[in-house]
Nucleic acid binder design. Structure first.
Lengths: 187, 187
DNA sequence: GTCTATAGAGGGATAGAC
DNA sequence: GTCTATCCCTCTATAGAC
């Protein structure tokens, strides 16, 4: 049945996404994905030829999720500074996960950047969406170098995520995000 | 011979340190360390009982290197702001490596933080040394919250390293470090 | 102290019955 | 479209000759 197939495919992608985030891509085995999704190991070679294909599907799903989120943000029709705050609030809401596993985008990209650059390029699609969202906001604010500012704020968020994860320090994340909000506010 | 043994041990630690940085800890195999160090695979179980022990030795070596660097910095007897600049210049000098492999401290800690927290704690020794170096400088400057500022600047550097690595964007690193220098200067 | 050979577990991937 | 059985490879780690 086609419908059943799609369902299983989504289960695999969802389980893999969680595990890749919690354990890292290379540290996650087929066995673990199978156990988490409730499907027998051999089965999902029917859906994905290789582990890399699973990662690509995971990234595609996350790209679509981000795209959907941004589209929803756009419907809110907020002024530029509040648009930037939407991203900052997103990080604030994910604080507990960041304490435990770091940034879902950054840690995956960083892991693959070490020696799997081809796969890493795929993960940059996730970043690019957010970068262009913040760049647009800085542009709307009439800033001189919107692209540089966009990379700057994404870098700030990555740094906050790394330190929060390393020291499992949630208060640090909260005060740093507040500081970023103040910085945005006085632009 | 004891001397020969120590020499081999250092060769292993050096090769492992390079590979852990370039490929990540979990992605580096004994075979690769053996090839890089020129020693046969089985041999270095004489020096290290497990792979984890090699990592600990690698971290110990790096801790000692950082400690030595900081001691040397102290002999320079510079004013606080210039002390902070020593760290910023260090990052600037490592820009090419950061483009290729990210921050040598941060990427290792982040990898192990995912699901090898016991090992990760060991790697925090490297961070703690640098954190206390910058905290001391902020304290000497009479800043209100030196510890928070110390974590802040370390986070900024981590964020810069992550983005530089992801996008292989060296100019980004250079302008961001310059911005940090300006920020330090006007404290 | 140095090296070879190999054990034992677990990884990704495949073949083929149903 | 679903599942079992299994292959082959690489991994860490060990045993034991020299």
């Amino acid at each position: 049945m086609k419908a059943k197939g799609l369902e299983n495919q989504q289960k695999i992608v969802q389980s893999a996404a969680d595990l890749f985030y919690q354990k890292g891509y290379n540290q996650t085995s087929f066995t673990e994905i199978a156990n988490a999704s409730g499907l027998p190991r051999g089965n999902f070679y029917y859906y994905f030829k290789t582990k890399d294909d699973i990662l690509k599907a995971v990234v595609d799903a996350r790209v679509e999720a981000i795209r959907g989120m941004i589209e929803q943000w756009q419907t809110l029709d907020k002024p530029p500074k509040q648009r930037l705050n939407l991203l900052l609030d997103l990080v604030l809401n994910e604080a507990d996960d960041i304490v435990d596993h770091g940034c879902p985008l950054g840690t995956l990209s960083a892991e693959l950047g070490k020696d799997q650059r081809l796969l890493q390029e795929k993960t940059l699609e996730m970043f690019d969406l957010l970068v262009s969202w913040v760049v647009d906001a800085f542009q709307a604010l009439g800033c001189d170098e919107p692209y540089e500012l966009g990379l700057h704020i994404m870098g700030r968020l990555q740094g906050i995520s790394v330190m929060t994860h390393l020291y499992q320090n949630k208060p640090f994340l909260e005060t740093e995000i507040q500081a970023l909000k103040a910085w945005v506010d006085q632009l």
